[in-house]
């Protein structure tokens, strides 16, 4: 059982229920040319569309599996794309990146994949992330919107970035822009995944295995993979 299996299962169930009403559309990452990379500061005045503004629902989530349960290159969009929402000016936003592969060192792999996601920057799109709040705040510049920048471009760029990593075999991305409620439905698996990541980070960074006093003892005791990580680290200290 992989580290995020439970959270991935929950995310899949939530997405299935959203898709039941026909709200989800699927695209293939390879179907279009990759958008130019670049880091752009988009001021409010130049913004065509804002997604995940701190005042609306926003969520960023990274999950992995090791059982091949990821449809490689698939981009799922629940809700309107950039070009369909320009009149609204603002959208709630969730971005879920799911990868599959072989992760020998969970900590290193997590950081590699996370950094690849952080480093995915597209010309005309400003992306900001607040890891502790699991939020993502994007601004699409007017020029980029005029040129047709789409969430499919962002999805394709994310998939391209994470798949450059040796340990990643396949990747898919899900965007939810349909409503704040839909975004919030992903909050529970996201919070739970965050606890796992926090526990893992603490283990590696502090190298403290006094489990009786650790705030993540419950997480480690429940998740088999964290138990393995803990044993691996404890053994390496002996």
């Amino acid at each position: 059982m992989a580290l995020f299996d439970e959270q991935l299962g929950e995310v899949r169930r939530v997405l299935e229920s959203m898709s039941a009403g026909g709200a989800a559309r699927q695209f293939a990452a390879g179907a279009r040319e990759l958008w130019d990379k670049g880091s752009t500061l988009v001021l409010q005045e130049d913004t065509a569309l804002e997604m995940g503004n701190p005042s609306v629902a926003s969520l960023s989530l990274l999950l992995w599996s090791e059982d091949g349960g990821v449809e490689d290159g698939r981009i799922t969009l629940v809700g309107p794309d950039v070009g369909e929402a320009l009149k609204s000016g603002s959208l709630p936003f969730a971005q879920v990146v799911i990868v599959d592969g072989t992760f020998e060192s969970e900590y290193d792999s997590y950081r590699d994949i996370r950094d690849a996601v952080y480093d995915t920057r597209l010309a005309g799109l400003s992306i900001r992330t607040m890891p502790s709040k699991r939020t993502l705040w994007c601004r699409v510049g007017r020029d980029a919107a005029d040129k047709g920048l789409s969430l499919i471009d962002l999805g394709a760029a994310l998939i391209d970035s994470v798949k450059r990593l040796e340990e990643v075999g396949s990747a898919e991305v899900v965007f939810v822009t349909s409503s704040a409620e839909d975004v919030r439905r992903l909050t529970s698996p996201a919070a739970s995944a965050q606890r796992l990541v926090d526990a893992m980070m603490k283990m590696y960074q502090e190298q403290n295995f006094d489990c009786e006093t650790c705030e993540y003892q419950d997480v480690c005791d429940t998740v088999m993979d964290l138990k393995k990580i803990r044993s691996k680290l404890t053994d390496s200290q002996d």
């Binding site: 005045e45 900001r128 992330t129 607040m130 890891p131």
Partner: peptide, 28 residues
């Protein structure tokens, strides 16, 4: 809290500073 490494802190800082900007036209 010790739950974030340098990279997380760096992207957090970028986010928080963007939130702290008050914009008016082409001025921030």
């Amino acid at each position: 809290e010790g739950k974030r490494d340098k990279r997380d802190l760096s992207v957090s800082l970028d986010y928080l500073i963007a939130e702290a900007l008050t914009e008016r036209g082409n001025m921030a």
